[in-house]
Amino acid sequence: MLAIQILIDGFAISTLYALGALGFTLIFGVSGVLNLAHGGLMVIAAMIAWYLDTSLGTGPYVGALAGLAVCLVAALVTYGGIVRPIENSRAVPAHERELFVLTATLLWGVMIQEALSYAFTNSPITVQPLIAGTVSILGVRTPINEIFIAAVAWAVMGALWLLVNRTQVGRRLLAASINPRALTLLGFELDRIYLFVWIIYGLLAGIAGVLLGSFLGSGSDYVPGLTGSAFTIVVLGGLGSVSGTLIAAYIVGYIETLTAYLVSPSLREVPALILLVVVIYMRPQGLLGRR
């Protein structure tokens, strides 16, 4: 019974981790940006979904869609207002741009956290589950919302895989991640490709934020933790590697769940962090990383 419980709980957590980290690694893979405001964008989606549902009475579905939309806008503001001006700035030396973007997105994340705290307080909230109730899976009572979350997350990840591997625009994204200069020489506008990938990123972060908010709650204090967790998974899997991120998400999710069940819930994050240190030491590029 305990093993089944660990399997189910670990699967749900890991899938959410994967979805949350996927956009983070996609942005890095295609445009070389490490967006440290990532957690802030996820929390924006959850808070808007919660606020519209509970305070304006829109219902959970409209709330979730609105959270998604606002997260998309916030992602585009991050790109257009923070990342792009630095990348186009002549005042910032080319070899220091990545560092400047890193610092700027970190500060942007802090600003988002403070703004959310001011607007909604830093008390945690929970987004209403899109489907209520429980079912028994092999004798383990499981919230239907948990299954729904895993299904949605896998559907989204499947759609992303199809987009990247089976469409023209997806192949351009791949090309941009491998050799952006060659793509420019072929006449493609990198800015349009980057804008497109930020749109996908905004949608991924929004979906992950709303789903996570209905599973583990959300709030302004969650911002650094969510960024940190995505960062850990992406570094472990290999920066920019989508498949590496998926594998790392499941490794981290199951290690955490095993620790929580078999050792102590208070120590659930420790073994994964130890593993991260070991991987960085033994294989700095991560499990499937190229850079």
């Binding site: 305990l2 419980q5 709980d9 957590i13 583990l216 709650g217 933790g225 769940t257 929580a260 069940y261 819930p265 208070s266 659930r268």
Partner: peptide, 13 residues
């Protein structure tokens, strides 16, 4: 439990 515990499922189990 630690105040930063995010998933209480193992405790409830």
């Amino acid at each position: 439990f630690a105040p930063n515990t995010s998933d209480f499922t193992p405790i409830y189990q």
